[in-house]
Design a protein around this nucleic acid. Structure first.
Lengths: 292, 292
DNA sequence: CGGAGCATTGATGCCGATCAAGTCTCGTGG
DNA sequence: CCACGAGACTTGATCGGCATCAATGCTCCG
């Protein structure tokens, strides 16, 4: 038995016992994976193919009112016109907390853009060790890892109930043939992701635990600000364990570092709720995690 | 007697020692940067636009005989025809050891493909800390980091005298308009680079010093093998310091780890010359650094 | 109200950084 | 050709930051 994923939905049917490579996780992900495995909803009911037109229309979201619009496609891009005939745009899907959008090893079909909510992308090595590559939030792309090989290299798992928008990649490439801005947009997306990861490499290779955590918080803060949310008060959607798994630390160290930042008067922090008290002070601590 | 290097193989014969700019590398970072900062050559002076035709012809290399050909462009791509009018292909440039191909902050114009030799790509944070992102060798792309912002995010510095091929990116994008395979090729390149970096993240976040070094060696070995060189005997072109800077370790730890691998009988190692004795044994040690 | 997952905090130990000394290599100039 | 010196490398000794082990508290939800 395995969890239903969006990719399967996309394909129309869950493959029979797709040989799940051993995922003898360390501490982390087994939990999340399990939760997802037990996600109750039969997604197939919502497949475009199997959904009555009315319902489909309801699902299909109008790009013009999408809060991710300005992050998703190039400025001035007319999704209505461009996607009119082939239905490239507006294919939204709900995801529940813990559910996979796709899993490593699955064939790559779509890019996804987070519309509502957030998720984590997770690389898993042969020994079952996990590394969280990123925590995409609204407007950010998910699934670029699959383009190179045609198979996803990461898992993408929702951190909370949310909505993603599926963009069939082939259609997108095709569409980009006559649209310079779209071609360029795709290149830029990927390149920026490359630079983001390199900043993470810097963080992992050369920073202390405290610096890493501060960089992480500043990065979140900045991305929230870009989306019109408070840059000072926010809610971490991920656990300490997941933060650690992202930053190359243990959950205990993450917790201790947060406590330390509190005691330094730089942040206030109650569970997942974080308030930045002294932004400048934080920036002083960190070597700067160059963000999106 | 030393082992044949990639550069020599490519050129058919060891060149007479060209005056080597000294590459002072103390604790790597600033030193290397400074040395290179004073590198005399202005690369942009050698762009096709500003180069006399005769010199250009001499510089221009025939793609058909380029050993990087199969890595560089999609299979079956006709560079002669495609690039005939606009001179996109064959713009080779020599680089000396320690010289920068480009530097962070410079405007992004070209992608580069290493033809002969190898280099390092280096990210530098606000505090001057360095992180080596990769060691591209023949056939690998350099400069993808600049696409997103139009400005290079990394330094790229030659590890040895060599040759790179400059591909004007705008021309490439333009050319990709009517060439699906080229468009797809570019996407795949970047995506694969993304996955490569994520494997590095895994390495940095979750592996011990020994595992990191083994992963590194296996990665090199594999890439050499892909190029038809020995996967068992090779010459590291970078210093221990640079290896450490890539793997998030100190040079001492790199040295000790190498010694340990020697004493375990897995490799033999004299200075930069490395021989893998027990490939399977190495693979057992590592959590696998998923490579190119 | 109970339980499961999440978080905090403390005690201890180890890996790798840091400091230090000495060797080797190789390019340069006497 | 040899001597010199700077950079590269190795190896040892010590230290410290973070992982690990462990116990307890908190929070949310059924």
């Amino acid at each position: 038995m395995h969890s239903t994923t969006l990719a399967e939905i996309e394909l129309g049917a869950p493959r029979a016992a797709m040989s799940l490579p051993h995922r003898a996780a360390g501490r982390l992900a087994t939990q999340g994976a399990r939760a997802a495995a037990e996600a109750p909803i039969a997604w197939h009911a919502q497949l475009p193919e199997s959904t009555p037109n009315a319902a489909r229309a309801a699902e299909r979201n109008d790009c013009e009112h999408c809060s991710s619009r300005k992050f998703c496609m190039p400025e001035g891009f007319d999704t209505k016109k461009a996607g009119a005939q082939n239905g490239v745009f507006g294919n939204t899907r709900k995801v529940k907390q813990g559910e996979a959008i796709f899993r490593a090893g699955e064939p790559f079909k779509n890019l996804y853009v987070a519309k509502v909510g957030s998720c984590k992308t997770v690389a898993i090595d042969n020994d079952g060790r996990e590394q969280i590559i990123g925590f995409p939030i609204a407007g950010e792309f998910i699934g670029l890892d699959g383009i190179g090989t045609g198979v996803h290299a990461f898992d993408a798992v929702a951190l909370e109930d949310g909505v993603v928008c599926a963009l069939p990649f082939n259609a997108l490439t095709e569409m980009s043939e006559h649209d310079f801005s779209l071609r360029s947009h795709l290149h830029k997306l990927m390149s920026r992701e490359l630079v983001r990861e390199s900043a993470l490499l810097m963080l992992m290779g050369r920073m202390t635990a405290l610096e890493r955590l501060v960089s992480f918080l500043l990065n979140i803060s900045k991305r929230y600000a870009q989306r019109g949310y408070s840059s000072h008060d926010f809610n971490l959607r991920m656990t300490r364990d997941e933060i650690g798994c992202h930053l190359g630390l243990t959950l205990e160290t993450v917790s201790r570092s947060l406590s330390k930042l509190s005691s330094l008067g730089l942040v206030k922090c109650a569970g997942k709720q974080v308030s930045i008290i002294d932004m400048a002070g934080l920036e002083e601590v960190s070597g700067h995690y160059i963000p999106h």
